[in-house]
Design a protein around this nucleic acid. Sequence first.
DNA 1: ATCGCTATTGATAATCATTACTAATAATAT
DNA 2: ATATTATTAGTAATGATTATCAATAGCGAT
Lengths: 132, 132
Amino acid sequence: MRETAKRQTRQKCEIERVVLSSCDHPTAETVFGRVREALPAVSLGTVYRVLKGLAEEGRVREIAVPGAPARFDKTTGTHAHFVCEKCGAVEDIGIDAAEIVKAACRGCGEADIAEADIIFRGVCPKCKEENK
Amino acid sequence: MRETAKRQTRQKCEIERVVLSSCDHPTAETVFGRVREALPAVSLGTVYRVLKGLAEEGRVREIAVPGAPARFDKTTGTHAHFVCEKCGAVEDIGIDAAEIVKAACRGCGEADIAEADIIFRGVCPKCKEENK
DNA sequence: ATCGCTATTGATAATCATTACTAATAATAT
DNA sequence: ATATTATTAGTAATGATTATCAATAGCGAT
């Protein structure tokens, strides 16, 4: 009895291609919109399902944003994000997240830390400019 | 024209008391259960509303956990959390979060960072023990 | 190429956490 | 006490995500 053999489909290819070529950390809905340009019949459910699979396989990273839909990131290594509370934009942050995880391991001793979600919230330069 | 004068109610007092005396980072639902012991007629909506208000006033801290209901914390200063992926338990982590925020500010330069959500995920010692 | 098996899809319903709405209640100033 | 209106309980609505299921389409074997 074999394990479930994965199949390659147009939808999977296109959804992965869209995420890997996006630099704005798109939401599932945004990915949906972009995939639809090439495959007008895709369903939102498929986008969610495939994104989840890609994240589980480690080909893509899911970023959970408090109070907002999840975003998807082509960069899979542990790194931190900045979320603008005005416009919702998500950006990568130049900070050594691996070092933070190591410090956390020292700080808690017994638990096995597998992943880190590090999100900074505030106002991005663009919104700061516009609001004053 | 005065600003809306806040009123003190049994519900608000009890909800705040429950969070401030809880050490397990309860969810709104858990707070609801505990408040009901003293006020059997409270509604879940009131618990959510009051918790939100307390968080906005900075009397309590809301912790957004990816893929799980939000938790509430009596410790309001910036600090990190560990979430067990097996049992869902949330614990404080002994790590200098303020230092991390400072590093992030250096790392991104222009944005105004107001808050940080730092969550480590993994398996807690208890679950590690039980699963092997 | 064709066939058969079944992973995958599109469409839609369901779920879950949370918020919004509303008439009734109760906290405060007078 | 009374009037005012913030707050509540109860319930409906929302938004993101997941589950369901019949129909479709990869892919390995013929």
